[in-house]
Simulated scan of single mutants.
Amino acid sequence: MKKQSVLLFIVGFLLLMTALSGCAANQANGKANGTETIVNIGIQQNVDPLLLAREKGWFEQAFAKEHAKVQWTEFQSGPPQIEALSANHLDFSSVGNSPVISAQAAGIGFTEISNTRIGGKADAILVSKGSAIKTIRDLKGKKIAVAKGSSGFNLLYEALQHAGLKDSDVQIIQLQPDEAQAAFNSKKVDAWAVWEPFVSYETIEHQAGVLSTESDLNSLSPSFLLVRSQFAKDHPDLTVTFLKVYEQARLWQNKHFNEAVAIYAKAKNLDKRVVASALKSNPSINVPISEKIIHAQQKTADFQLSLKIINNKIDTGKVVDNQYIEKALKK
């Protein structure tokens, strides 16, 4: 009887483990139960249609019609979103040029499904009001705050090379935006490489100076909507729905600009002037990813490879799939 009890226990335990593994697999694929799909959306500190749609509840409304439920997670920058995608904790995200390059080089399973910004002035290297630093070359020996792997990180390295400097010529302090902003405003760092709306906030509220943007370097810093590749395969219709809602929010923002500014200002506790400046300097789009953008990304990837920021050669066109945005934009 004891042997039989042990055998029954072992069988029962194995069945329980199998069931739990199945539940975990279903959750990783977005399944909450047999009928409802969980859609995990990442959002970072930007003012863009993703935030507007969240504030309006439009994703929740659209996905509910397809028996799906939305869960939001906030991030400081793009790289942590990539980590969440890699761990199957995120299905959709919006990030800049550099995080997707690092993600592709690391073999993470994501797909670029829309180009949301061109990014000529998406990022800037800032210095405090009254700073003696007037050019990038003046940064030699100075402390510069930046979020590692972000679009601001890439701008900083491009600007340094353009000025004939190496990263070893400056002190790069790796900080996420909340910590970097405190360090910058307390003058614990001499410069800060960051993106909108932080650029508009610092230049308007604190009269910070701009040393460089992408346009000064004849460079682009495009932004993208990403989907976890397996999620897109499992839920192609939800992927199209996601893009449709984003487009709904973008068009509403353009048509009701002042109302959108007020919504963003309240959501992020920003002055309306800051929000309006950020939206105008880095306007939102929602279009298929063009050969021009793929080429710009390839140029950035090759640049990062030359500096050993990434360790292997990549083809940036390989992560692009325009089928979803083309379906979403069909009348």
Rank of each mutant, 00 (worst) to 15 (best):
D234H: 11
D237F: 05
A208H: 01
K292I: 07
N286F: 09
D234C: 08
L270P: 04
V227A: 14
Y264D: 06
V287L: 12
L217D: 08
A232T: 08
L217E: 09
V227C: 06
S212Q: 01
Q230I: 14
V261D: 06
V227Q: 03
N282K: 01
E214D: 10
L217I: 11
K280E: 05
A278C: 11
A208N: 02
F231P: 03
N269F: 12
V227Y: 01
I289N: 00
L238H: 11
R273V: 03
K268Y: 13
S277N: 12
L270V: 09
Q297Y: 01
T239F: 10
R273P: 01
E291G: 05
K233L: 14
P283D: 14
N282I: 02
S277Y: 04
V245L: 08
N258S: 15
D234R: 09
Q230A: 14
T241S: 13
N286S: 15
S223N: 15
V261G: 09
L238K: 13
N218Y: 08
P283T: 10
R250F: 04
F224P: 03
P236K: 11
F224E: 03
K292G: 11
I293V: 15
N282P: 02
E247A: 04
I293L: 09
Q297V: 00
S284N: 10
S281A: 13
S223D: 11
L243R: 00
T241K: 08
A278P: 00
F242Y: 15
L211Y: 01
Q298M: 11
K266T: 15
A276I: 01
V240D: 09
L270G: 06
L225M: 15
R273T: 09
L251Y: 06
P222T: 05
L226Q: 05
T213I: 11
Q248V: 05
A262W: 06
S221Y: 00
L279E: 05
E247C: 03
K255T: 03
A232R: 02
E247K: 02
S219P: 04
L251I: 12
Q253G: 05
I285H: 06
I293C: 05
Y264S: 10
E259L: 09
V210D: 01
V274F: 09
K244T: 13
S221L: 01
Y264V: 07
S281L: 06
K268N: 15
T239R: 04
L279Y: 04
S219K: 00
N286M: 12
S219G: 02
D271Y: 04
N218I: 04
V274G: 09
S284K: 00
A262S: 15
A232S: 14
L279P: 03
I294H: 02
V227G: 01
N254L: 11
H295P: 03
L251G: 03
P222S: 09
A296M: 02
A278Y: 02
N218T: 12
N286Y: 05
P222H: 04
N258L: 13
L225A: 11
A208P: 00
S219I: 00
N269M: 10
